[in-house]
């Protein structure tokens, strides 16, 4: 798989369901390139259009993406630095899920917002520590920063809405991403009750 293909297919893998526009926005790849790659993937049966331009990966597609991860990140899977970084992330992840849930259940109380955003900023700084191992993760920093900016401008949809590149969507994808880099099944990674 070319890097372009990997980025595009991985984006759908992480989002589970997406339009090519969303893939382009998240990866930074130009729309035309994305459309070309995805058309090819559809033709080869890796991507399926389930209606209204929403795309999902077929079993073959998932298989292919996971295969790429195994190859590209074989070294990272043995790397203690990445492992430690992930442990640190888990702590932050529990806090994040708690704060978002709290915010949602309080009817969207804006004073909880500050706490949430400071958490995300912490994540952005943490990403800075892993960029040398996984350069691709620079895109997540940018996406988080843009989402924070949008929220600071009053566009609250950028907190949790699945219709835009919201903080929760980015975090959700990132979590899936780092788990896949580490070759871990999801079950093990759910937050403790």
């Amino acid at each position: 798989m070319t890097d372009e293909e990997f980025l595009a297919l991985n984006s759908i893998y992480l989002k589970k369901i997406a339009t090519s526009a969303a893939v382009s926005a998240s990866t930074g790849l130009p729309e035309q390139a994305v459309e070309r790659v995805l058309a090819g993937a559809e033709a080869s049966g890796r991507v399926i259009d389930v209606g209204q331009g929403m795309l999902m990966l077929s079993e073959d597609g998932v298989h292919a993406v996971l295969g790429e991860f195994s190859e590209r990140y074989a070294a990272s899977r043995e790397d203690q630095v990445v492992e430690d970084w992930y442990k640190r992330f888990e702590l932050l992840n529990s806090q994040f899920l708690k704060v978002v849930t709290d915010w949602q259940q309080d009817g969207g109380d804006l004073s909880k917002l500050e706490r949430l955003l400071k958490l995300v900023e912490r994540q952005v700084r943490a990403l800075g520590h892993i960029i040398d191992r996984i350069p691709r993760y620079g895109v997540y920093s940018q996406r988080f920063t843009q989402a924070i900016e949008a929220v600071d401008k009053g566009q609250i949809a950028y907190l949790v809405s699945p219709d835009v590149d919201s903080i929760h969507s980015i975090w959700f994808e990132f979590h899936e991403d780092i788990l896949t880099v580490l070759g871990r099944p999801r079950d093990v990674a759910e937050p403790a009750e």
Binding site: R88, L91, L92, Q95, R122, R125
Partner: peptide
């Protein structure tokens, strides 16, 4: 210091 207090507590 911008350090996660959970990390410190741990």
């Amino acid at each position: 210091l911008d350090v996660d207090p959970e990390v410190l507590a741990d």
